[in-house]
Amino acid sequence: MSQLLELQVVAVVLAGTLATIAIWSPRKALIKASAVVVSIGFMPVAYAGMADLLSKPKPIRLEWYQSQAEKALVLGAQLRENDGVYLWLQLDGTAEPRYYKLPWDQELAKELQQAMKEAEKTQSGLAMTLPFEKSWDKDQPRFYALPQPKLPEKGGEPGDRPMQYKHPGMNA
C-alpha cells in the first residue's frame, strides 16, 4: 500500500502529459476532446486496477524489486494442488509482509509441509532461502524450521526475587 499513491501520481502525470500533447496537436477539435476524455478516464481506472491488485498474490516470477533477497520469514502458507503454493513472506528490510504465488511443484510442496511440521514440533518459525531464485540445486532445502528460541536463564536477574503474597491482615 505504501507505493500505491506514488504510482497513481505517476499515472496521473503521464495521462496529463498525453492530454496536453493531444490539446496542442494540429488535429480536429473532436479528436483533441476525445484524447482528453480518454486521458481523464484512464486515471480512475488505473487507480482501481492498482488497488484491486493489492490483495492478490504476486507471481514470484514477477518480483524484480526484492529479487536479490537471500531469505524470507514464512508467516503463512497454503498449498493448492496443481494450482500453486501461496506464501505470505516477511522480507528483510520491508515494513509489511508480501503475498506471493509459486507455481505448483510436488517436491517443493512436500518440502514445505515437512518444514512446517518441524517448525510446529519445535515451536519455532519457518524460513525460506532464495525466495525469488529458480534453483536447480535440489540438495539444499528451500524451506527450513528456524532454530528453537533460547529459553530464559534460570537464575534471572540478581535482584529478582520470587513474588510473595502477603495477606492484608498480616502487617508484621
Rank of each mutant, 00 (worst) to 15 (best):
residue 41 G to Y: 09
residue 67 S to P: 07
residue 113 Q to H: 01
residue 46 A to Q: 07
residue 123 Q to D: 15
residue 93 G to Y: 03
residue 146 L to Y: 04
residue 96 E to P: 00
residue 153 E to C: 07
residue 143 F to P: 03
residue 109 A to Y: 06
residue 144 Y to Q: 10
residue 105 D to Y: 10
residue 132 F to E: 02
residue 121 K to H: 15
residue 139 D to T: 15
residue 66 Q to L: 06
residue 111 E to V: 11
residue 131 P to E: 00
residue 45 V to N: 06
residue 54 L to R: 13
residue 123 Q to E: 15
residue 133 E to R: 14
residue 61 R to N: 14
residue 132 F to L: 00
residue 148 Q to A: 12
residue 124 S to P: 02
residue 99 Y to P: 06
residue 159 G to V: 06
residue 140 Q to D: 11
residue 69 A to Y: 01
residue 117 K to M: 06
residue 75 L to N: 07
residue 48 A to Y: 13
residue 77 A to T: 01
residue 76 G to K: 04
residue 153 E to M: 13
residue 106 Q to C: 11
residue 159 G to P: 00
residue 91 L to G: 00
residue 158 P to A: 07
residue 53 L to V: 08
residue 114 Q to A: 14
residue 82 N to M: 08
residue 118 E to T: 11
residue 97 P to H: 03
residue 160 D to F: 08
residue 133 E to D: 11
residue 157 E to L: 07
residue 75 L to W: 01
residue 84 G to I: 10
residue 157 E to I: 03
residue 86 Y to K: 14
residue 58 K to C: 09
residue 109 A to R: 10
residue 59 P to M: 10
residue 41 G to A: 13
residue 133 E to C: 04
residue 38 V to S: 15
residue 147 P to M: 04
residue 62 L to F: 13
residue 136 W to N: 15
residue 46 A to V: 05
residue 84 G to S: 07
residue 165 Y to E: 00
residue 95 A to M: 09
residue 165 Y to S: 06
residue 124 S to Y: 00
residue 124 S to W: 02
